[in-house]
Write a protein that binds this DNA or RNA. Structure first.
Lengths: 229, 229
DNA sequence: ATTGTTCCTTGATGTATATCAAGAATTGAG
DNA sequence: CTCAATTCTTGATATACATCAAGGAACAAT
């Protein structure tokens, strides 16, 4: 019975994910069958850039960051992923190793879909590919936007854009809650914690926002939009 | 007869492309049938970021750059594409507008695959989706690498990495030929033409390379690799 | 060849942001 | 609750890079 209920919860998680939602129930069942559940501690590395892939993952609980690391230890976060979001997909369809590393930011649970079993499922159910395609296209869009940000915007612009993104995502134009520590936010925005802190201070002084720990009140959202560039 | 030979050349171009090579001949024929050939002048815009897509493209002759532009006119190049390389794919599978703009860098010819006809073909031939998936995964890898470069490497490192990339692509470790003007190279590397010029000057002074117009002699390739970070 | 255009280089200057350092605040583990 | 560890802030300094400006080189068209 325990096993049965685990399968249930997996199937539900799959049905709730952007990637697999909309697929017929039997197929969800198949997917749940081939997946293995894995646990990770906060800070634990899930996989390292360059390693050969055995399959892809989907976050069930917690948060996972996908990142590039430099030799001297600096990191650039590519994505921060939450429940229902897949990662490590590209090696499944392109061979080669992982293009970036994955680290769990909290205690977390993920489903692992072994490459072979998944590809077999794909072969039998072409509609699966379309789902994957759509998800990848969304990711590409995000990567393109990030390149644009890093290259064409300065740090305050990038922060402003991110805050507006959070506001939209959280459905609240008055205040947003940072879902990650500021040090990680700095890594995501491609700047240093010190600079980020100073930008927050400056924006506060300008009356654009008010910072209370992870809670940020957006006082002049229109001005923020202008800051965006 | 003219029409027939045009179809022939198209089919050959498709068979030579990384995207469609390996597909059965009849399918290539179908693809060639739905494609429309388009001509572009040097500097002509093929599509603008944000516009609704009618389909995707593939370069037949010439070079096309895919880029993001800032309000004040600066540009960041995402890819430079040559014969056989597709572009504008993501909107086909994800709805939404183009995530970036496309501009022809030379007089060029491209095939245009209308969205509807292509999706119909995909529905009938699932192996097409796998081809597209593989191509997208490769692109994602490139984008990830570019983010890493912009964020974690300085301009000399980025240039060194690019030169080594060209050397590998051109199969010659002694000298490489820039396939684009240096101003465009600066836009690709996320720096200014002035800075790029200075970096070339410095590397020349250090005896790492010698610049003769678009031809660059790599004198100490190992040192260049170290530069990369 | 000659002219106009684009492309490239070099110099002088300014600025955004990284880095180093140290203290303050928050967090989490026992 | 308390102490250690992490996270955050603020200040002082350094630097990579952009920008402005102008001269020179390569290139295309006539």
């Amino acid at each position: 019975m325990i096993v049965a209920s685990m399968m249930e919860s997996r199937q539900k998680a799959l049905a709730d994910s952007a990637l697999f939602s909309g697929l017929p129930k039997p197929l969800l069942r198949n997917l749940a069958d081939i997946a293995q559940e894995k646990q990770y501690r906060r800070g634990e590395t899930i996989f390292l850039e360059g390693r050969i892939s055995g399959g892809f993952y989907m976050v069930m609980q917690g948060q996972v960051k996908i990142l590039k690391m430099s030799l001297d230890g600096k990191e650039q976060i590519l994505y921060i992923l939450g429940a229902g979001e897949p990662f490590g997909i590209t090696p499944v369809f392109h061979g080669k190793g992982f293009p970036a590393s994955a680290v769990s930011m909290t205690a977390s649970t993920a489903l692992h879909f072994p490459k072979g079993a998944f590809l077999a499922l794909v072969a039998a159910h072409p509609e699966l590919t379309l789902a994957v395609l759509s998800a990848l296209c969304l990711r590409m869009r995000r990567l393109s936007t990030q390149i644009e940000s890093l290259s064409l915007k300065d740090a305050p612009m990038r922060l402003a854009a991110h805050l507006l993104y959070l506001a939209e995502q959280q459905g609240n134009t008055m205040h947003v809650t940072l879902n990650i520590p500021k040090k990680q936010l700095a890594n995501l925005l491609g700047t240093s914690p010190e600079t980020l802190s100073r930008i927050f201070a400056e924006m506060s002084a300008d009356g654009l926002l008010r910072v209370k720990g992870k809670r940020i009140e957006l006082l002049r959202i229109e001005e923020l939009k202008n800051q965006t560039g």
